[in-house]
Design a binder for these strands. Structure first.
Lengths: 357, 357
DNA sequence: TTGAAAGCGCTAACAC
DNA sequence: GTGTTAGCGCTTTCAA
């Protein structure tokens, strides 16, 4: 018994071969039931079932069941030109923001017989184009795009091509399109007001990724809410990280502190950025929340475990997914591609990273 | 621009915004190129391309490109009986263990033209059966099962049916099947030895989900390694949580502490369980790592952020996904379903939750 | 090297 | 209510 640094292959006795005999066809069910193929087809499909005598239906169902019949989706797809499949693009499934959204979409689609194929773009436009091409080739019935770039000409082509598209967590400047997201305006308002209520006046903003619509929006809404609440927006108290990462957040925070302008609180553009703030502040000997309060954004599932537990704006990720599925199904059903947008309300989760000034 | 006898939608910019109403067919490419449909088919597919005169190939490629032609996957699937799609079942994509694995599989499959459809079972056997049915109906070419139950009769049916299956993070008692996972034996060894090296002798084990193969294995390997390292296994120092959750881990830990047997360290069956240990210990006024050292398992991306940062056994999740794809592709290529198992080595990540006794 | 033709399994328009 | 039939777009013999 010993541990091996190498990956080890555990050989196992070779077992059964492959006897994937061709699954039964409609024709086989028909001949087994002594009926014509078309009658069987009608009996099998709920929409046309009422055109067949009930007893016949019963007989068909029985034989189909007995033979383990399953409609061949290729043959059907070839005929009806629908794949019952939708394609989804995310920057990276490893980003904890996306799994709950994907899950919500899956759940919403599943009951209606749709399946989803997923692609990761890694923020690479070439890859995105490429995946879109694969999806289109596979004749997906609809598309969900959760990739975050604000500017993206291909979008218009898609819409022109008549493919139903729903954007998630992203708006586009190019074309009016359906989209679902958390309400960033309301959410940022929650954050700023929470700090204001705690008596904070000099509030900094550590933003990220202005090229992404979430990053862009949250920044502007921050300004708007500061004004709305009668608080001064000090340009020196606004910094940006290039990405939504901890390292980037830490760097931006150090820059902020280095400017030497007094502040008592930070609104961070995401939880990852907030963790970066923790580190950046700590590097300057500042303590959260005694010296500086920090509010994160997204409400990731680990906020409770952070040190200190992070006050955050919770985004209803799963619900966003469900809503996306609903919108898409609606477009699929009605062939109506007129855009509709849904913003879901966020909520404030108060934890230990914020305190009275 | 030659005029073709076949009616073609006019005003469609080539290669740009294609209209979905009617994607060009092989026949249309053929008539545009003044060739027979079969020649075009041959020219378009790399495998048969060498049977066509190079100039002809060039001409075909050009017209196909110009028309924005894409092979219809239904028609092809109908002919060749392959969907180029694989199905994957996970308990819950929201569990952070799975996204990186899914991502790894996706990446491994994508280059070879395969797409993946995903299903969440929520540990519900009925749902699992149901999803399997949907996958089979869609004629998936292969299956990846990351659902964790040890006992599962349907598995044998699948193998008998000739569908290539790879298990992830799970073994089965029923049939010899291909599987990929982290090397739990080696990993648990890393954890126990790390603690032993720090001078710990009375080491507790907070396990979870014996019905899952990971839970089961880690428990037994814990015992094995304790013996191997000459440490006493005190049955009173072994507790189990029903699930891999923080709450369950906290309860189990309170139970452990309540037993009153002295111990200085805990090996937890997962990071979530470890977080439960933190809470359970804290509830009894015990401090990590001063009173008790804790080692987690999985190496989730947030370990650094916990309070204290969690020493953990890192499982190469993305690599597991890649390896799974490799195995599956191999089965797909060779039509050889003889099982092969791969255990990938884990690594110890030392953080602040463990210290010298 | 290219063309003709036979389906793959299903749906739907049309007959009976 | 049930049967007949013509494709959907592609691959793949078999001929030329």
């Amino acid at each position: 018994m010993g541990s091996s640094p190498e990956s080890r292959a555990v050989g196992q006795p070779a077992g059964g071969g492959r006897n994937r005999s061709r699954p039964p066809t409609l024709r086989e069910v028909a001949s087994a039931a002594q009926l014509d193929i078309s009658t069987v087809s009608r009996a099998l499909r709920p929409e046309t079932r009422d055109r067949v005598k009930p007893e016949t239906v019963k007989r068909v169902l029985a034989t189909a069941e007995a033979l383990g019949y399953r409609a061949n989706p290729f043959a059907r797809g070839l005929k009806v030109q629908r794949s019952m499949t939708i394609g989804m693009l995310v920057p990276d499934l490893g980003n904890p923001l996306f799994p709950p959204i994907v899950r919500g979409i899956e759940d919403g689609l599943r009951d209606r017989g749709y399946a989803m194929i997923l692609g990761n773009t890694d923020q690479d436009l070439g890859r995105e184009e490429n995946l879109l091409d694969v999806f289109l080739q596979r004749r997906v019935d609809g598309l969900v795009l959760a990739t975050a770039l604000r500017s993206y000409p291909l979008l218009q082509n898609l819409v022109d091509g008549g493919v139903p598209v729903v954007l998630v967590n992203r708006t586009t400047d190019e074309a009016p399109m359906s989209m679902v997201a958390g309400d960033d305006h309301q959410g940022v308002g929650l954050a700023v007001r929470h700090l204001a209520d705690l008596g904070h006046q000099r509030i900094a903003f550590v933003g990220a990724a202005l090229s992404a619509s979430t990053g862009f929006n949250r920044y502007h809404y921050f300004r708007a809410w500061m004004h709305a609440l009668g608080l001064e927006v000090d340009e020196e108290l606004i910094v940006f990280a290039p990405w939504f990462t901890k390292d980037a957040g830490a760097e931006a925070t150090k820059e902020l502190v280095g400017r030497g302008r007094p502040f008592t609180a930070i609104v961070a553009a995401s939880d990852m950025i907030a963790l970066g703030c923790y580190r950046g502040l700590r590097a300057h000997g500042l303590h959260v929340p005694d010296d500086v309060s920090v509010v994160g954004y997204n409400g990731s599932r680990w906020c409770d475990e952070f040190d200190p537990p992070l006050t955050s704006i919770h985004v209803p990720k799963y619900q966003i997914g469900r809503e996306t599925a609903r919108l898409l199904l609606n477009m699929l059903d009605t062939a109506d591609t007129s855009p509709a947008s849904v913003l879901l309300p966020t909520s404030l989760q108060v934890r230990a990273s914020t305190r009275q000034v």
